Simulated assay, not measured.
Amino acid sequence: MAERLRLMPGAEIPETMLGIGDDAAVIERREGPPLLFTIDSMVEDVHFLPDIPAEYAGYKALAINASDIAAMGGRPLAALVSFVAPRQTDVEWLDAVYDGFAQAASFLETPLLGGDTAVGPRIVLTVAMLGSCPDTAPVLRSGARPGDVVCVTGRFGGATGGLRILAMERLIRKPEEDYGHPGLRLLDRHLKPQPRLEAGRRLAKAGATAMIDVSDGLVADLGHVCERSGVKMTVEAMSVPIDVDLEAVADKVTHNVLETALTGGEDFELAVTLPPDAFKKAAAAVKGTGIPLTRIGVVEDAASREGDDVLVLQDGEPVRFAQPGWIHFEGK
């Protein structure tokens, strides 16, 4: 779909702007830092279950847009929200969604400037967010170079673990009885993602060459960077940091912990490429935000080998997955 939009007549982008292909569009200005603009929608029964507490849906809708800003090394400035819902939707549910918007806006220090409402066949939450890069140039997906190291913030698989618990428990009845405190923390990872805004800015200052937030799945999103940068990557599977709470309840939520971590998606961590000599400085900078930065692989010349853009190795052998992550418009 993005490629179709890129090729549409009249879709030419002025030289002062960067359009389709990154986590956010970039608008250069004659004076002041460049602006970032992003938009995301969450659709009922696609991106969230209809029976979750409504405030979580509102919170997440704002947070995932902030994660796009984080992936550019920026900070959010303001947001607009749009709400589509069936006519019979309970007013208290709608109020709770707006409470979630307000909680996220306060946490992210991002004012809500307004928005729109409409009646439709199912609930759709859309957020448009404006940001800026006051300290560095925006970090794009297209800057990875052969020899760079591939790194990630945080740990992986927790959000997918939380989704699976939620799907099994549905009304979040009492998951602590079946999954204990690890299960509750996994639910929180899924329902209230934490955009890595400060980490993104510190990585930009440390010399990040490319960056993306991990929403579709780590392997899939690294593939997006490879596509934009014209490179390939090799990832050491055992180097990928896995959510300890996922490992604690793995027998109840997944048949394959590694696959869940590498392809599950919605962790909203940052995947970043760095020159090798910048890693130590970047890791120290990110550690100051309370999360780790882990080296998991290397960027290679696209002509160095045949096959997939992202090669995952375990004990020196290629690891294959049914799919690398979320596939848009197929809903899986």
Results as ranks from 00 to 15, higher is better:
106 S>P: 02
60 K>S: 15
60 K>R: 15
103 Q>A: 12
59 Y>R: 05
85 A>P: 02
77 L>E: 00
108 L>K: 08
69 I>F: 13
104 A>M: 05
69 I>S: 05
81 V>R: 13
88 Q>P: 08
79 A>H: 01
93 W>G: 10
110 T>S: 06
99 D>W: 13
65 N>L: 07
65 N>M: 05
99 D>G: 10
62 L>T: 10
69 I>Q: 03
81 V>I: 08
90 D>K: 04
100 G>R: 04
84 V>P: 01
84 V>G: 03
61 A>S: 15
64 I>H: 12
97 V>A: 09
70 A>D: 08
92 E>L: 13
74 G>N: 02
66 A>R: 04
57 A>F: 13
64 I>E: 08
64 I>V: 15
83 F>H: 06
94 L>Q: 08
88 Q>D: 15
77 L>A: 04
76 P>E: 00
85 A>N: 04
83 F>S: 00
103 Q>P: 05
100 G>A: 12
65 N>I: 05
82 S>V: 09
68 D>Q: 09
84 V>L: 10
106 S>I: 06
86 P>Y: 07
78 A>R: 00
66 A>T: 08
75 R>L: 06
108 L>P: 03
64 I>S: 14
101 F>Q: 01
93 W>C: 06
79 A>W: 04
107 F>R: 02
107 F>K: 01
101 F>I: 01
105 A>M: 01
101 F>M: 01
92 E>R: 00
68 D>V: 03
107 F>Y: 13
94 L>S: 10
93 W>S: 07
109 E>G: 02
110 T>R: 02
63 A>T: 12
79 A>C: 10
76 P>K: 11
63 A>E: 02
90 D>A: 14
82 S>L: 08
106 S>T: 08
96 A>G: 13
62 L>V: 12
110 T>M: 07
68 D>S: 14
94 L>P: 07
96 A>Y: 02
78 A>T: 03
85 A>M: 02
105 A>P: 01
66 A>Y: 06
61 A>Y: 12
78 A>F: 10
110 T>I: 01
77 L>R: 03
57 A>L: 08
84 V>F: 12
60 K>H: 11
86 P>I: 01
98 Y>F: 11
90 D>F: 14
